[in-house]
Design a protein around this nucleic acid. Structure first.
Length: 811
DNA sequence: GAGTTTGAAACT
DNA sequence: CAGTTTCAAACTC
């Protein structure tokens, strides 16, 4: 059984995609401290650096172990862009340029004889997690669009050939094979590592198998286009610096073999961060489990991306391995990671996540297959163990499209949700509990099982949270765990959705991107053990608040409704700020069970929480019903859960309703109209009658003016109230202490009841006197006023005297 | 707060 | 695809 080592998990938050599955690595030492790589297996794949004139500098800095073959490639690039890659145990990639054009790196060959040998059986791409890493696959880095695409040859034969002739260069097919690292940050541009389409280059042979199998694209979606560099690599010598592809990743992607039952080819991208746990040398990783790390440092620590693929002879012989990855056509990007069933030790049992790319979504399938030979991953503390890759997929849609994370879950996986700092994505780490027990993972002090269960907290900037979550099946096993004070849960990201594989539901898989958050795809009857659960960001937040993933949690906690804290997902077409500033209205559904689009909560992919609905099924307790309802909605309208209001290219003015309204009586000037409600004009696609919601509409202008006026009034009133309140407060602040102390009392404070009565008596007495003397009325009034003046003078005098006395006393 | 109006969603 | 019904929000009183 495979369990992600705690160290690796602890490092994961920093990573976009992190599959830490390393399996079938022969010759791994039992203690697991180091995975030994076989020199013979090391297939040196010439890596060429193709650097466009305008591209940034690419440096391959091998650091290396003496035995390592490393090459340093430096490519001329724009001054602003620098890309450096050192292949030793690590592949450091540094991109210092944002605006630089596409940078294509073709490392001639970097082979490292590190302890860990992970070689892509198909492409020969090797990524080592234990300090030795091979980067044999050429890759392209486009700093301009924040995309780094690593193209990997998906030919099993290539690997086989490589094994047969180690000296022979492996074939790298560069067509369409991409490792896409997408950093959705400020620009929203992904970082793509891509193999150049150089075809066959000198020293590079292409295998037949490659031509048959479609070029797999591996897309790693990173979080937040931060410019900071993070130390990901373990060994000090090996460093990868990337301004935008900062995420450490260990991605093991099992190539799906459609035609063969043989074990799937695995493509492993291992970020050095993970290797930290594997390699004692690794020390740089900022991410520490249980700690809050601030990653918003302007200086981005170097990152290492390791591509490793365990050798599997059986696998290698299988041509035509495929990875179901959709072309990069649609803005929506989906990465799907499947975790093989932990229960099967049978060789080549691959649980390939059937990812449907139908919607043009980019889907990354990361699969971990259990092979006969156990994968030996050297961790500092653990012995040989199979590490299940845990993948998080972030789908970054253009124009506020949906972000989703699809994670295949093992049978009894533990999930750790990771919030990458600065990222708008939530990451989920899945750990197979059963594997931990079965593999007899070392029960060291800091056993991985325990650590994995613990929530990771990674803080960077405003968003800083990594919380373990459990898969849909094990949701009831979540035990509440108080968050640390440092843990700050923010859901500032725009629509974030996590798809957690729970059990297979093939019929829905094609619509992953359309699935609303919170969707749990139930396993299809007779299907595999891999399913999907679409977890909304809110859900992640919910889980963050209490859930504690226990590995051996067979005892089910009842599905906690408490964790269903309503989170705020951006509404259609609205920015996060807009949505976060305005809490969603609770629904009042009575008949729909909140499982129809009538319900705004459901329509927005949210769980009901603090709503006024009756007989609500839109919660975790009714996953099945909810799933079914979602499927129904999707069947009816595949885009049912997509935002209705698409963002225009340039600001709000271009926003428009995707379907248009059908208003008949409201003139589209009431909130009945979805266009008006969204504060957008009706467009040509609207079918409304008597529409007044157009630019030149006088009614609309009047309404707008009235609205503006009302708003102004409200603002003025608010300002006036605020001012008055402040004045009163100020007055109270000035007077209250005086009154209490007696010193410095204002004169009027001396006008007590007694003083007032005395004054009145004086005035009356003066009036009587004038009356007795038969003074004219005017004179009488003068005398009275004069007496009043005298009274005031005496009061003031007394006040001053009292103040002086008080002051003297205080002194 | 109850009742009415409205239009999207669901249904036929 | 069109017409009708259902539904819940928006609105009015």
């Amino acid at each position: 059984m495979d369990v992600v080592s705690p160290e690796l998990n602890s490092l994961l938050p920093d990573e976009i995609m992190d599959t830490e599955a390393i399996e079938d690595i022969p010759h791994s030492q039992p203690d697991g401290t180091a995975v030994q790589s076989e020199p013979g297996d090391d297939t040196s794949v010439p890596m060429e650096t193709d650097t466009p004139a305008a591209s940034g500098n690419v440096n391959l800095c091998p650091d290396a172990a003496p035995t390592e073959q490393t090459q340093t490639l430096t490519t001329s690039a724009p001054a602003d862009s620098t890309f450096s890659i050192s292949t030793g145990s690590q592949l450091p990639i540094s991109i210092s340029s944002v605006s630089s054009p596409l940078l294509t790196l073709k490392p001639s060959m970097a082979t490292s004889t590190a302890t860990t040998r992970t070689t892509d059986s198909v492409t020969g791409t090797t990524v080592t997690t234990s300090g030795l890493q091979k980067l044999t696959a050429p890759f392209t880095i486009s700093a301009a669009n924040h995309q780094i695409i690593l193209n990997k040859v998906a030919s099993s034969q290539a690997t086989e050939a490589a094994k047969s002739a180690a000296s022979q260069p492996q074939v790298i097919k560069q067509d369409g094979q991409k490792l896409l690292v997408t950093a959705i940050g400020k620009s929203g541009q992904p970082i793509v590592l891509q193999l150049p389409h150089t075809g066959n280059k000198p020293g590079v042979s292409q295998t037949v198998g490659d031509s048959k199998s479609p070029a797999p694209q591996f897309k790693v979606v990173t979080i937040g286009g931060r410019s900071e560099l993070k130390p990901v690599a373990g060994s000090a010598s090996n460093q990868v610096t990337t301004l935008q592809a900062q995420q450490l990743k260990t991605v093991q992607i099992a190539k799906k073999t459609p035609t063969s039952s043989a074990a799937p080819i695995k493509f492993i991208i291992t970020k050095t961060v993970n290797s930290k746990g594997l390699s004692p040398q690794t020390t740089v990783s900022p991410v520490i489990a249980g700690r809050v790390l601030t990653q918003n440092s302007p200086v981005m620590p170097p990152r290492t991306i390791t591509l490793s693929e365990p050798h599997n002879t059986s696998i290698q012989s299988i041509p035509g391995k495929k990875i179901a990855i959709s072309p990069l056509k649609t803005p929506s990007k989906v990465t799907v990671v499947s975790v093989a069933s932990p229960t099967s030790n049978a060789s080549q049992k691959s649980v390939t996540l059937p990812v449907n790319v139908a919607l043009g979504q980019q889907i990354l399938t990361v699969q971990q297959s259990t092979s006969a030979s156990p994968v030996k991953v050297a961790t500092s503390q653990t012995t040989t163990q199979n590490i299940k890759p845990v993948q998080s997929v972030a789908v970054g849609g253009v124009g506020g499209s949906q972000f989703k994370t699809i994670i295949p879950l093992a049978t009894q996986p533990n999930v750790q949700q990771i919030q990458v700092p600065g990222s708008r994505f939530h990451y989920v780490r899945l750990v197979t509990a059963t594997t931990a027990s079965s593999t007899g993972q070392p029960s060291g002090p800091s056993t991985s099982s325990i650590q994995t269960a613990k929530p990771m907290v990674v803080s960077t900037g405003a968003v800083r949270m990594s919380v373990p979550i459990v898969p849909a099946q094990t949701i009831k096993q979540v035990a509440p765990k108080p968050l640390t004070s440092a843990a700050v849960v923010t859901t500032t990201q725009t629509q974030q959705r996590l798809i957690m594989p729970a059990t297979p539901l093939p019929q829905i898989q094609p619509n992953f991107t359309n699935l609303p958050p919170g969707t749990v795809l139930a396993p299809a009857p007779g299907g595999g053990n891999v399913g999907y659960a679409v977890v909304p960001a809110q859900y992640v937040t919910q889980l963050q608040q209490s859930p504690f993933v226990t590995l051996a949690s067979s005892s089910g906690f009842p599905a906690s409704t408490a964790i269903q804290t309503q989170a705020r997902l951006p509404l259609n077409g609205l920015s996060t700020a807009e949505t976060t500033s305005r809490p969603r209205k609770p629904c009042n559904c009575t008949k729909s069970q909140c499982l129809k689009l009538y319900c705004d909560c459901f329509a927005n992919g949210e769980f009901c929480n603090n709503c006024n609905c009756n007989n609500c099924f839109n919660n975790l307790e009714h996953e099945t019903e909810r799933l079914k309802a979602i499927k129904t909605c999707l069947d009816r309208n595949p885009e049912a859960f997509k935002p209705k209001i698409g963002k225009g290219k340039e600001g709000e003015s271009d926003r428009r309703h995707s379907k248009g309204c059908n208003c008949k009586r409201s003139g589209c000037l009431k909130n009945y109209c979805e266009c008006y409600e969204a504060k957008i004009m009706c467009s040509s696609i609207c079918k409304c009658i008597g529409c007044k919601n157009f630019e030149e509409s006088p009614e609309r202008k009047t309404l707008m003016h009235l609205a503006d006026a009302a708003e102004v009034r409200v603002q003025q009133q608010t300002a006036a109230k605020t001012k008055l309140s402040s004045q009163i407060s100020d007055l109270l602040m000035r007077t209250a202490p005086v009154i209490s102390s007696g010193g410095g009392r204002l004169p009027y404070t001396f006008v007590t009841k007694e003083v007032l009565e005395a004054t009145c008596e004086c005035l009356l007495e003066q009036a009587k006197k004038a009356e007795q003397t038969h003074q004219p009325q005017a004179e009488a009034e003068r005398l009275i006023l004069e007496e009043f003046g005298h009274c005031l003078m005496r009061i003031i005098s007394s006040a001053g005297k009292a103040k002086a006395d008080c002051a003297s006393i205080n002194c």
